[in-house]
Design a protein around this nucleic acid. Sequence first.
DNA 1: ATTACTATCGTGCGAGTAC
DNA 2: TGTACTCGCACGATAGTAA
Lengths: 217, 217
Amino acid sequence: VRPDIGTLKSLALRGAHRGYVHVSTGELGAEMGVSQQTASNRLVALAAAGLIKRRRSQRGQDLALTKAGISLLRKELADYQRVFGGSGVITIKGTVSSGLGEGQYYLNKPGYKDQIKSKLGFAPYKGTLNVAVSEPEMAKLDMVPQDSRIRLDSFRADGRTYGEAECIPVSLGKVRCAIILPKRSHHESVLEIIAAEHLRTKLGLADGDAVEIAVEG
Amino acid sequence: VRPDIGTLKSLALRGAHRGYVHVSTGELGAEMGVSQQTASNRLVALAAAGLIKRRRSQRGQDLALTKAGISLLRKELADYQRVFGGSGVITIKGTVSSGLGEGQYYLNKPGYKDQIKSKLGFAPYKGTLNVAVSEPEMAKLDMVPQDSRIRLDSFRADGRTYGEAECIPVSLGKVRCAIILPKRSHHESVLEIIAAEHLRTKLGLADGDAVEIAVEG
DNA sequence: ATTACTATCGTGCGAGTAC
DNA sequence: TGTACTCGCACGATAGTAA
């Protein structure tokens, strides 16, 4: 059985994205107009796909969406908002933090630096601005559509391979900059921002300051 | 083949809710990861269900969503917004107009009047406020979830049957009132509002004034 | 009461093909 | 090029039932 988004949505409407909720396959099936068995199958499929996690309980079962499941629904939301001209701007709140990001390292490799210059239109300042972001805010990143993400290709240098990364153009205040994400190992709790200038100086930022990152939907 | 919402969404993302767009079943299938034949089947099913209208053209075909199709997607949007705590308030813009509405007639029938009093908690003023609403604004009504609609049952009186109607609690300015919709014959271009008081007097409204109807999402 | 197995059945998918 | 038919096949849905 292929994982069904409609089922996932029904579960979310019952609050399964907030935490565990109690459901029985019987009532779920009834709500969706299918049999108890089919509802059961769909839950098995969703669990196998890693979109929900379950635990059996006395009368029925308790289940919750996983992060992957929530991501998927958020992408759906973004699609529908795009259709109906939802504001189009996604804002992610966070606080300026220090700490050595991986991103910084990338910026000193010509292989990435040159790609940024040609694909984003600016030469990146040599450091990144780290922004600590809470889990639910981070999840909003899923709503950024594929075609407003810019891919940095992998390349070989110094006898090793540097992996793909992804840039998302954003604004911080009035300054145009970009989030840089290593393709693997994403969904950390810190975002790294690259810009043509030193953002801390330009915007007068210090550790702990609250910032809003605005992404073009 | 059962009408597939995912396909409908893909079409809307191509702008098919705005008007006719050119599509070929081949590329559509490729985009959705299914064969050309399956894409074709799905379009046939959507058309049969009255969700899209099509016309064949030189290279491929042109198709557009019908109002029913757009309604369906708007309901989806509303679902996802509810999941992610979208503001929850839907506002519909319109202009005050005169003209004898059907609603007015209903209000003088005790069969409806009493139901309104018991189900909405106020005794309706004997007239309705008519608000002319554009097509796209009217479409937002689809986003009001089933459980915030109040059903007025049909009844017999004077030797005839009075049909069902539906009330949606709303606010006009700070005044609590409700939209009343006959169950059949809906999606006209005029909404009728009932309230405990005479809204024109209470809010100082005259024909042509712009108003915003706020619905609790 | 539940979940979820097995077996059967119906339907959607896709290859080939007509237009 | 296109769309969309028929047909074979496989997957999903349901009924029955065990746990």
